[in-house]
């Protein structure tokens, strides 16, 4: 780990499983001996709003549950526009970004008051600024597995190869079985593995995929 504390923001839209993802990740890192502080928003702001979890991964000590501006080391976004929103407030030259590609449209966009740009445009904009930013089709994969809510777990799996932090499958298994009922364990493990697999595949495919447009102009 290069920074102490190492600051991770997991962001998304209310209902995407942000809180679960942050608590699972936090507990996985506690098992690796880190002292973890998590700050999050939920409640009214979760009804269709942006949600964020701030994780402070430290060798020791409790840190502010709100990360100071421009000081994120890693942004994990369950929704592409949210990656940009967080980037503007917490980003910096060295930040890493891992984002889902599937938009959750704000009602103002659904209503036609505001335009949500094509995901490809978001991706290229973000990658121009953060060259290593990775976008994966977590929701599409989760749908293939039968439940879109698994996209948060796929994102966690994808994170494992993308950060200097020790994100271990064994820790995930131990932690997720505490958080979800028994019969969901296998599904969650498969989602976690799918995330890791997407990151390996994605590296070779990224150039080709740039040609393909995702999501019509909405």
């Amino acid at each position: 780990m290069t920074a102490d504390p190492y600051n991770i923001i997991i962001t998304g839209v209310g209902g995407q499983g942000n809180v679960l993802a942050s608590r699972v990740l936090g507990n996985m890192l506690v098992r690796q001996g880190y002292e973890v502080t998590i700050g999050e928003t939920f409640g009214a702001t979760q009804r269709g709003g942006s949600v964020m979890s701030h994780l402070r991964i430290a060798k020791e000590g409790v840190w502010s549950p709100q990360i100071p501006r421009s000081r994120a080391h890693m942004i994990v976004s369950l929704e592409p526009a949210e990656a940009v929103r967080v980037l503007k407030d917490y980003g910096n030259e060295d930040v890493r970004i891992l984002s889902n590609t599937r938009p959750v449209y704000p009602v103002s966009v659904i209503a036609g008051d505001v335009v949500y740009p094509p995901v490809e445009e978001i991706r290229s904009g973000v990658q121009a600024l953060v060259p290593g930013a990775r976008f994966i089709d977590a929701t599409e994969e989760a749908l293939k597995m039968g439940n879109p809510i698994l996209s948060n777990i796929i994102m966690l799996g994808a994170l494992s190869g993308f950060t200097p932090l020790p994100i271990r499958r064994s820790d995930f298994k131990a932690v997720i079985s505490r958080f979800t009922p028994g019969d969901a364990l296998d599904m969650n493990l498969r989602a976690f593995d799918k995330g890791r697999e997407l990151m390996k595949k994605g590296k070779s495919k990224s150039v080709k995929r740039k040609q393909k447009s995702h999501g019509g102009k909405i």
């Binding site: 839209v13 269709g48 709003g49 421009s70 929103r85 503007k88 103002s108 904009g125 121009a128």
Partner: peptide, 22 residues
Amino acid sequence: DFLKKAESIAASAAPHRELTFC
């Protein structure tokens, strides 16, 4: 510069999310 650029991307790519019923 970084933040200025991020801000300009966000201006179009991060539309405001108003609260709504699920």
